[in-house]
């Protein structure tokens, strides 16, 4: 069972997210993450869905998604691509030494400190899944208070792109 990333171009209409998400649960496919946003064309949204499953499941998912009237295009984003997630992590700090250690970790991961108060530091980090899991692991020692993570977004590198034809 591998992790696959699917890019979807869909009509930007109410209910489309519901339709797509429902299809996954209805047919017993596992969504790991999903993210949605408008594209350069306001009538079209792009969804990025990462799923766990074997090749056969991936094929079925793709075909079932393609059958949805409001789904314009589905393609697997694989091989040469850029993948990013974003996480905001609020960490407990006991003293200034603690705080500077956390900031060092943030530095190593090229994360930004976006909020500091007496008892907490909030860090913003972007990267692929492994990077985000790695920084979380490092910060755990300090006591994580809250995490908010986005799903994956991904684009192919170079010329290759998804377009409505």
């Amino acid at each position: 069972m591998g992790v696959h990333i699917l890019g979807l171009l869909v009509e930007n209409k109410p209910g489309v997210l519901n339709r797509v998400a429902g299809l996954f649960s209805r047919r017993g496919f596992n969504i790991s993450t999903i993210s949605v946003g408008m594209t350069e064309n306001p009538d079209i949204s792009r969804m990025t869905i990462s799923i766990k499953g074997d090749e056969k499941e991936l094929e079925q998912v793709t075909k079932q998604l393609n059958k949805q009237i409001e789904v314009i295009k589905v393609s697997e984003i694989s091989k040469d691509y850029v993948e990013r997630r974003l996480a905001l992590i609020k960490v407990n700090t006991s003293d200034s030494e603690d705080r500077s250690e956390i900031m060092q970790i943030a530095d190593v991961f090229r994360a930004n400190v976006v909020d500091v108060s007496k008892k907490n530091v909030t860090i913003e980090v972007t990267g692929d899944r492994d990077k985000i899991e790695a920084i979380i692991e490092m910060l755990k020692e300090h006591g994580i208070k809250e995490i908010a993570k986005t799903g994956t977004v991904a684009l192919n590198r170079g010329k290759k792109s998804m377009e409505v034809d």
């Binding site: 109410p14 209910g15 519901n18 339709r19 429902g22 009237i69």
Partner: peptide, 16 residues
């Protein structure tokens, strides 16, 4: 109604 019938229609639409 559209929520209920998503899984049992080829397509559905709530007009606004």
């Amino acid at each position: 109604t559209t929520g209920i019938t998503i899984p049992i229609t080829k397509h559905n639409q709530l007009l606004k």
